[in-house]
Design a protein around this nucleic acid. Structure first.
Lengths: 347, 347
DNA sequence: CTGAAAGCGCTTACAG
DNA sequence: CTGAAAGCGCTTACAG
């Protein structure tokens, strides 16, 4: 090992003060006269001293690190949206001089993985954590919240009774779905189908509910065979649509997909059967994925501002870390319709 | 604060042994009889004990964390390739039970940022680091290497004299460019232009060199006005091509772009002047970006396997962390041509 | 305003 | 095989 590690004793010696004083200037205490401060600063610079963070933490300081836990089976690196969320968190953290330790959860049912996650908290590697992509109710997250760790969860319902250390962040999915449905209805569509996302995720559930409500408000009935189950992926959208096309004769005049990836897949399946979008069937997505604009046809969708949501979540999370309170906080962001070319007025 | 923090003393008491023994079982020492081990394990489970990682580190253990430093001005989150590299590193790290602390360097000339980076090392937050996107020679990285930190650098030349703690990872860019150039020549092209990437990055330099060499080997001359400067971005490719089109009359029959993003931008500029790709001019890219396949026309390119490269880099990095050696290591991965539809035989 | 000292929770020679 | 004790490098009441 390198013997060159500089510690506060050496700084103290060079500056002609005690380690206590070195620590006081490092931590910006008020009652240090300017001359003392300058002496110490000079020594710090000269020796290129950086306090050992483990020692600081052991003495009671925070790690200034937050854990980012992404649930994602399969190839995460390929999912543009997921990546964007990760980077949004990192960028916002660094605005506050926080670091982000990222951990990918492949499988929430894997004991060892879950233990690793818990370990990260209990070992005090991090001051708080954010969970993305967990299902609606996740026992190990609940345990961590119970333990008092400060945790932000994306896409989770606000439980009836919770504590100040749980921060919930959601999009207003019902409203978004309502906008999508109303838009389609405004174009004259009456027969509208829906391709759901993962219904175990809150957003999956909420989007479906939003759709059903919007239909009901417009006194439109939903043909049960036009309600198809999928997951939030391109592949699932493709399969779901393909299956529908094999079994059902009558088709709706428009589909709402729970996200853009599903829409891409569904459009692919339609096309394979020579059904044109939007000429034969209109399709609307959700998210406004980076590819949606470049898609052919450019996808009409409900735009969701991930960056904004995660920034707000980070603001609250860090505030809570630095000053824990019992105040229960949640953050919510509205969606907006982006009209492109995948929906047509019903003739 | 929660008073519930469990430490090794409590475990020791419950198990009826000393803290030393608890530590020995936690660290899997050989000379602990099975019964003692079981007693302790039972107490650990019962109390839900996790060793405090700061205390462990202070006592000499590693943090099992590696730093990932991404140089990227502008919106990182939007760059699919960058995101993929980040996630590749994270995923590989977790295979080894390592954590990744990600830090985005907006501006390498910003003093405060660079200081943050150094701090992360000196504070011993991490056991080693990886730099992506730095320029060819970066003083602060050199300083860190000098200090003995274990560092992996992507896209950097192997300096004449270096130490075992620098691990260099590169694609074989010259070879890739040679493949691209030869392919174009094989299609009958003689007049070939090149749109360079950031020439301060090693890959930018190397790709250009590879192109020039391939041309020379085929006794083809390069018209200097067909050598255009850009950066590794879509926007830069667009601007470079636009400018070229404004000033120069004769055009080459094919262009090689230093990466796919540049190619996208260049094709856009060509199209705006009603020059069709590949009918009028062939364009070949580099990287095999996720969008290249879906591009219109699907882009012929030189595929580069980021995942593979970063996995190899991580293997070496972690090996070095766990067992520092003076052995000088570098990792290198070859590229392969992916023929799609953006190049045509010259008629 | 500042120093001496205790304490944070671990690991690991050292003895036995 | 195992315990007592020193040491890792900081911070922060406590005195003065």
């Amino acid at each position: 090992m390198k013997k060159s590690e500089i510690n506060s004793i050496e700084v103290a010696q060079l500056a002609g003060v005690s380690r206590s004083t070195v620590s006081r200037v490092v931590n910006n205490y008020a009652n240090v006269p300017i001359e003392t401060k300058e002496k110490v600063m000079k020594a710090i610079k000269e020796l290129n001293y950086f306090p050992n963070v483990s020692a600081q933490m052991l003495a009671g300081k925070k790690s200034r690190t937050i854990g980012l836990f992404m649930v994602s089976s399969g190839e995460v690196s390929v999912d543009v949206l997921t990546n964007m969320m990760i980077v949004s968190v990192i960028e916002k953290a660094s605005d506050y001089d926080y670091y982000v330790l990222t951990y990918i959860i492949r499988d929430t049912t894997d004991k060892a993985t879950i233990n690793n996650v818990k370990e990260i908290f209990y070992q005090r590697r991090i001051d708080g954590g954010i969970f993305i992509g967990t299902e609606h109710y996740e026992p190990f997250v609940e345990e961590l919240i119970q333990e008092g760790f400060i945790i932000g969860v994306f896409d989770q319902e606000h439980p009836e009774s919770t504590t100040g250390n749980r921060i919930v962040a959601n999009f207003n999915n019902e409203l978004g779905m309502k906008q999508a449905t109303d838009y389609l209805i405004g174009l004259g569509h009456r027969e509208i189908g829906v391709i759901n996302g993962n219904i175990k995720r809150l957003s999956g559930e909420r989007k479906y509910e939003g759709f059903m409500q919007a239909m009901e408000l417009n006194s439109l009935v939903v043909n049960p065979s036009w309600v198809v189950a999928a997951d939030f992926t391109d592949e699932a959208g493709y399969k779901a649509m393909k299956q529908l096309l094999e079994h059902e004769e009558p088709l709706p005049t428009a589909f709402i997909a729970a996200n853009d990836s599903i829409a891409f897949g569904a459009i692919r399946a339609l096309r394979e059967q020579n059904i044109q979008v939007p000429e034969d069937i209109s399709v609307i997505g959700f998210d406004d994925h980076v590819l949606s604009e470049k898609h052919s046809p450019p996808l009409t969708t409900v735009k969701v501002d991930f960056k904004r949501l995660f920034k707000q979540l980070m603001n609250v999370l860090i505030a809570k870390i630095e000053k824990p309170t019992d105040e229960i906080r949640q953050v919510s962001v509205d969606c907006s319709l982006v009209i492109r070319e995948s929906c047509l007025r019903k003739q």
